[in-house]
Each structure stands twice: as C-alpha cells, then as structure tokens.
C-alpha cells in the first residue's frame, strides 16, 4: 500500500504534464489539421513514459537500502511491476475521465466520441 501512493502520484503528475502539453498544442484549422492527433500521441507517449519514470524513481530513489534490509528491499522490488501496472491503469482511467469531462476541449481529443 505504501508503494502504491507514489505510483499513483507519479501517474497523476505525468498526466498533468501530458494535459499541459496537450493544451499548449494550438488548434490548427486549415484543410488538414493534425492537432488532435498530436494530443493523442502526447497522451500515449506519456502513458508509456509513466511506468518508466516510476520504475526509475522507485529503483533509484524510493527503494530501501539493501544493505540495511535486504528483505525490505526484495519486497519493494517485487511489487514495482504491480505498482507500475496500477500507475498505468490509473493514468488511463483518470485520462478517460478528464477527456469525457472536457469533451469539447483539447483534452477531449485523448478519447474522442465515436460518430
């Protein structure tokens, strides 16, 4: 449980970053606007970055010192994949919720309505 909180926090922080970048992408207009695709790409790139960032954070910063407690360290390393998965799922679920709440805004492009 203790390791879940940073996983979800990292997911939300990365989602916030994805949202900021998506909002900064300008509406293009014109005959072939690609801004909606760019926002979707940003969302999924950050979805992939999310577990990587969490793994790096967990491995190099959050993990207990193995010299102090090898057992605690092994237990922490064991749950990292689960936390990464939960982080990704949190990222996607919160992303979908935000996208549906801002349906006509830029973040609505993450998960557009079907025709």
């Amino acid at each position: 449980m203790v390791t879940l909180i940073p996983a979800v926090a990292v997911a939300l922080a990365i989602l916030l970053l994805a949202a900021i970048i998506s909002i900064l992408i300008q509406f293009e207009g014109g005959i072939n606007p690609k801004d909606d695709n760019k926002r979707r790409i940003v969302f999924w790139v950050f979805a992939i970055l999310n577990p990587i960032v969490y793994w790096l954070l967990a491995y190099f910063y959050l993990a207990p010192d193995p010299e102090e407690s090898r057992r605690a360290y092994n237990r922490f390393i064991e749950v990292i994949p689960r936390d990464m998965l939960i982080g990704v799922i949190s990222y996607i679920i919160v992303g979908i919720i935000i996208s549906k709440l801002a349906v006509t805004g830029k973040l609505g492009h993450w998960f557009p309505k079907k025709k």
């Binding site: 207009g29 014109g30 005959i31 909606d36 349906v103 006509t104 805004g105 492009h109 557009p112 025709k115």
Partner: peptide, 11 residues
C-alpha cells in the same frame, strides 16, 4: 473543413 474541425472537437 470547419465542420470536420467541430467534429474532432466532439461537436
């Protein structure tokens, strides 16, 4: 093109 843009914005 404008209608397409509104469609992309879920309108």
């Amino acid at each position: 093109g404008f209608i397409t843009q509104l469609d992309k914005n879920n309108i």
